[in-house]
Design a protein around this nucleic acid. Structure first.
Lengths: 131, 131
DNA sequence: CCAATATAGATGCAAATGCATGTAAAATTT
DNA sequence: AAATTTTACATGCATTTGCATCTATATTGG
């Protein structure tokens, strides 16, 4: 990543790697799956919410499943689809990632921005997020 | 790219691709090389300014050279190093990329932010940029 | 009901990236 | 000035990404 605001993401990635934790994209997916609760979530929903390409979603989920962080089951309501649910290990690793995520933002960002500026930034970036 | 502000970058990338133009990273490097003027620039300087990994810089420059957008020559003052300069074709392609870049920002960003907000965002992101 | 089309997901192949390491030429140390 | 360390850049290998395409099920139109 180069240019503009990739800096934030790069910092978080670097910190996660230093801690021996998975990349940020895993966090995003795990969060969606965890939020979905026991009913699980369909891969295409993850794709839509995270704006990931279809093949990216497919492979990310494969890696998460291989790592034991999610499980996938055939969807009874739709023979084409799957239902993804989080495992205890998945919950656990996401919990470990969260403070690194937050700290990377707090440490690196607050070094250069005031609290008010950080809030403004968050708000502005939030507005950019496609609906 | 997922998360936070990668959205901006993704949009620009998508627009560049639609126009059949090279990726954003090429723009960044070309801009540095062009700015350096006839004296050229050393790869390690590009690496430092763009926060690219060393191997990434090396390969990016190779692709740019293969595409005919830059030329590399041995550095007389330092036997280890090189001097990179832009070619007319390089200047040209960067000029083609610029409006796409700018428009992607203007179109996608200004749809959701007021002019004032856009300026704030640029200022905040600028502050994050490591020196 | 059948044909055509759309949707969910997987995957082969090529290109890009990350990591570790290699080579060669400074710069520094003693 | 010889030995050591640092700096500049390249590259082999594994992982990841992008693109195109494939399979299978669902939906829609006649």
């Amino acid at each position: 990543m180069v240019s503009i605001s990739g800096i934030l993401v790069d910092r978080i990635e670097a910190n996660l790697k230093d801690e021996g934790l998975p990349p940020l994209s895993w966090y995003d997916v795990l969060l969606e799956v965890e939020r979905a609760g026991p009913g699980g979530i369909r891969p295409f929903e993850i794709k839509e919410r995270l704006l990931l390409p279809q093949y990216g979603t497919s492979r990310l989920l494969k890696r998460l499943a291989d790592a034991g962080y999610v499980t996938t089951a055939d969807c009874v309501a739709d023979g084409r689809g799957q239902i993804v649910t989080i495992t205890p290990a998945g919950r656990d690793i996401r919990a470990q990632m969260w403070p690194v995520y937050a700290n990377a933002l707090r440490t690196d960002v607050q070094e250069k921005l005031t609290g008010e500026e950080a809030e403004q930034l968050a708000a502005l970036l939030g507005k950019l997020r496609p609906t």
